[in-house]
């Protein structure tokens, strides 16, 4: 009998602690599968952010280092410049990447550091319990925008991939989503392309993933697809922005 699907060997036996319907687990699965396909399980270095994925080291087989909130691109810069042979994924939440770490994100991209940033855009601060993120949609209720995010008080949500794409150095900038099987496959192809560009051409790439945080969106996991299509994707259009 042919094996058509199996759990990636780059994942450990420890099951994740993410909430039901959370996209972080899906993103990890994709990275694990890609690392096996590219045969880099023992080479890949996974730089974690501060957020719901901070304590993710037990879930996979990669070497990993943690950083202070928002600082992973600077930490990875120091690492990769001194150890250029290890492929590096910098995995960040939207708050980590596009609020507290905006400076580090933009400048690592501007320098074209030879690593791949995967930004999980779930439009909230997941780990701290659902406060407004730089990506929270106008009108969206969070614990710090109890009446819905207002333009007057908070301005507009940041489209981070577009910010990165206007820089010269990034080789490949894309926004993908994890809300349907088709989108998940497209996201996988994008992350794989970014990693290949890093390995073969020492290129910086940025992959924004539209993610679900059903817990803090206060919706059932079964409602994610509809919520994404109706609310999230219209503001954060999918597709390649560069490369």
């Amino acid at each position: 009998m042919d094996v058509v699907y199996k759990r990636s060997g780059a994942l450990s036996d420890v099951s994740t602690t993410y909430c039901p319907g959370c996209s972080h687990g899906t993103a990890f699965k994709l990275i694990a599968e890609i690392s096996e396909e590219l045969d880099i399980v023992n080479k890949l270095v996974f730089a974690t952010p501060i957020g719901c994925t901070t304590f993710s080291a037990p879930f996979h087989k990669f070497s990993t280092f943690m950083s202070a909130h928002g600082r992973a691109p600077a930490n990875a810069t120091g690492f990769k410049r001194c150890n250029p042979k290890r492929p590096v994924i910098v995995y960040q939440g939207d708050g980590d990447c596009a609020a507290i770490g905006t400076g580090e994100s933009i400048h690592a991209a501007a320098r074209g550091e030879a690593f791949t940033v995967v930004m999980a855009n779930n439009q909230v601060y997941g780990m701290t319990g659902g406060q407004m993120a730089p990506t929270t949609l106008t009108g969206q209720k969070t614990t710090t925008t109890p009446n819905g995010r207002s333009v007057e008080a908070c301005g507009y949500p940041i489209r981070m991939a577009e910010q990165i794409a206007q820089l010269e150095a990034p080789r490949f900038v894309t926004r993908q989503s994890l809300h349907t099987p088709k989108n998940i496959l497209q996201a996988k192809a994008a992350i794989k392309k970014a990693l290949e560009l890093q390995i073969n051409e020492e290129a910086y790439s940025f992959v924004e993933l539209l993610c679900a945080c059903p817990t803090n969106w206060a919706i059932e996991p079964s409602g994610i697809k509809e919520y994404m299509e109706k609310n999230v994707i219209p503001y954060f259009p999918l597709g390649d922005l560069k490369g």
């Binding site: 600077a74 930490n75 120091g78 410049r81 580090e104 400048h107």
Partner: peptide, 25 residues
Amino acid sequence: VFIQAESELAAATMLLGASIAGARA
């Protein structure tokens, strides 16, 4: 490796990465 960082926040953070890579930073 010499990097003019974007801030002292980033400059000092880069030391962590360099140290993890085995460099005297």
